[in-house]
Design a protein around this nucleic acid. Structure first.
Lengths: 229, 229
DNA sequence: CGATTGTTTGACACGGTTCAAAGTGGGTGG
DNA sequence: CCACCCACTTTGAACCGTGTCAAACAATCG
């Protein structure tokens, strides 16, 4: 049976670049990669700069954002261990990527990366799939911003962060980002985000331990609100 | 010099699957393709169905949409001649595609399409680029829904439709879709969209010939509003 | 322990939605 | 060909959710 909704179904086994690769192939990929450290608050890459590399996140949390000339900022994604950056780019990056925490990434030159795909068919498949997942994520966000109320968008984010953690039984979600980052991700203001958290707490859907840790008390309610059912 | 913003720069020569291909290669692609007619109002494909083919639009206008269990609908894109459908999909379509007008498309089985990319390197590049454009479109929409006011979103759509027409000097834009479609694309209601058109008309930015034809009177103002500068 | 930054809460204003009604246009049948 | 009808669009008025402005509160770091 097909999923009822893309975001309704956490990926059971998320595709990485290494999925299905032989040890030898994994080695080849790793040989082409250079480890890079990114300090908290620092930028990994900037909007409009030439897209020369793709990145795999090894640790830490980063944030993909886009700013207009007027200074309005939209956060496009929060990026965690196992996510990829720059896979579906043309010659220029369409966004900046900043580190929320100290992070380590592996950098592969775009040219090398494209060549490796010709030599490793399975890698090409993985890239295809990851590209599909990235687009699916963007479409989920379009739906959230276009159709959902403030508290539903907050549920959408909490659910998204929860789904990415391996264990579905865990009910604790860490919010590494600030309220401003959340607001800019969901197309809201700080105050509205804060009120949405308070409302969900008052309704008993979540518990807010600190501003950066929430407990999910009613997973089913959260999920419904996140999907806007 | 890099573009100031992805949507600020209409693609000078939009990439098609055929870009840079030899006549023989174009023939091979065409041999694998089956022409299909889609009647106005009919669906080309449905959300959650298995993604078995990719499509090139030859004529007509279609609409990509996603609906939630609650019946809320988000229009993801308006698709015109030269656009592609299903290029960046995984096993299931994440959206439905309906025809606004009678349309003709070429259908290529996904499997064949993937194999052809192995045999025609330039085709692989084209697919990469088209995939990048599709993601860029989605990111533009996220930005619009997250950061822009109603009248700016309407400018965003008008500008987008204008940029896709070949001739940048033409100041006429045809709106094939209904106000409801526009509303669902921009995350607004019919009434708000209608009021936004009236406001832009009152300000002299556009002229509304009929509900489905507008004249751009102040291209510069329109562009600024569309970009939210 | 104070200072600074980030978060929550409150009061009010505004933009967008909702509900209602009038206006417009295209198509059909008389 | 005109008149009617139906669907779509526009406009109006009241309401509500979110944004804005302001202040209290909490947490973090020196």
């Amino acid at each position: 049976m097909p999923p009822t909704h893309s975001s309704a179904m956490p990926l059971s086994a998320p595709t990485t670049l290494f999925t299905g690769l032989s040890p030898a192939e994994i080695d080849r990929l790793n040989e082409s990669a250079v480890a890079r450290q990114v300090a908290a608050e620092a930028y990994l890459l900037h909007q409009h700069s030439a897209a020369r590399a793709v990145y795999m996140v090894e640790s830490g949390v980063l944030m993909m954002e886009r700013s207009s000339a007027a200074g309005r900022r939209q956060v496009m994604a929060f990026i965690q261990t196992g996510n990829f950056i720059g896979i579906a780019q043309n010659e220029f990056y369409e966004f900046s990527v900043a580190a929320l925490t100290a992070a380590t990434v592996k950098e592969i030159p775009q040219k090398t990366f494209i060549e490796l795909q010709d030599e490793i068919p399975q890698l090409k498949d993985n890239v295809r799939r990851i590209g599909g997942n990235i687009l699916a994520h963007a479409l989920d966000q379009v739906f959230a911003l276009g159709q959902k109320k403030a508290h539903e968008r907050v549920c959408f984010l909490i659910q998204q962060l929860h789904d990415r953690k391996g264990d579905p039984r865990s009910r604790v979600v860490e919010l590494v980002m600030t309220r401003q980052d959340i607001a800019d991700y969901l197309g809201l203001t700080i105050e509205t985000v804060s009120r949405a958290f308070s409302k969900l707490r008052a309704e008993g859907v979540i518990e807010v331990h600190s501003a950066h840790t929430v407990d999910i008390l009613q997973p089913e309610t959260l999920r419904e609100m996140a999907l806007a059912e």
